[in-house]
Simulated assay, not measured.
Amino acid sequence: MKIVGLTGGIGSGKTTVAKMFASHKNIAIYIADVEAKKLMNSSKKIKDKLIANFGEEAYVNNTLNRPFIADIVFKNKEKLTLLNSIVHPEVRMHFQNFIKINDKKKYILYENAILFESNSYLLCDIIITVIANLNTRINRVISRDKTTKKEVLDRMKNQWHDHKKMLQSNYVIVNENLDETQFQVQRIHNILTVNS
């Protein structure tokens, strides 16, 4: 059973690529960001630590106050590191359980925006990095998150540069044209399942 890490900078289109992989029913997909958001709302351990470190405002009506937390962590690297140190160990345990449940699949696709930054790449047998032109990425995030160019660039500063990720990846998907992206996804899936 292979663990295939899928990563890429903000706006590269990881989610789009993950959805393309999802068309194959013989694999399981774990989206770390989605599961982290769920755990931040359901795990008492995470809640208690976030309130202790970020204050009562971290939660509103028992739900994570995302804008409040984002405003703090994307402007302060130490606070982002602190947030990750609280959330990632819980996500990692959750993922280990997911692996056990899906051990009959051809492979598990583990989508994580900060695969390298959080050392989660150590869990992976194969790594795929999704890249796109910087302006494409900025425009995607602005239209998706209704945010500003400055805010997007601030978030990018907290992620590794593409070339650094690419050097440590087995495959790179260039996500500019959806048909070409689909072709690349299919080719990689075929390679990953040919001998398993």
Rank of each mutant, 00 (worst) to 15 (best):
N76R: 14
S120P: 04
I101G: 01
F21L: 10
H94I: 06
L64Q: 04
I69G: 09
E78S: 10
E111F: 04
K49W: 08
A36G: 04
Y59E: 10
I131C: 06
I69W: 10
H88R: 06
K105P: 02
Y59H: 13
I86W: 01
K104C: 11
F21N: 03
P89R: 06
N65F: 08
L123I: 09
S143G: 11
Y121Q: 08
A70W: 09
P89M: 00
E117P: 01
I138F: 07
L123F: 11
K44L: 13
T15S: 13
L122V: 07
K106V: 07
I128W: 04
K146E: 15
I31L: 09
H88G: 00
A22E: 08
A113V: 03
N62V: 11
E117V: 02
D145N: 13
V91T: 00
R137C: 14
F68P: 07
V60G: 11
E151A: 12
N139E: 12
L153E: 15
K77H: 14
L123W: 06
I99F: 03
H94P: 06
H24G: 03
K79S: 13
M156L: 15
K14C: 00
I131N: 02
M156N: 08
R137G: 09
D154Q: 14
H24P: 00
L80P: 01
S23W: 08
M156S: 06
V73T: 07
T15N: 08
I101N: 07
R140L: 11
N41H: 10
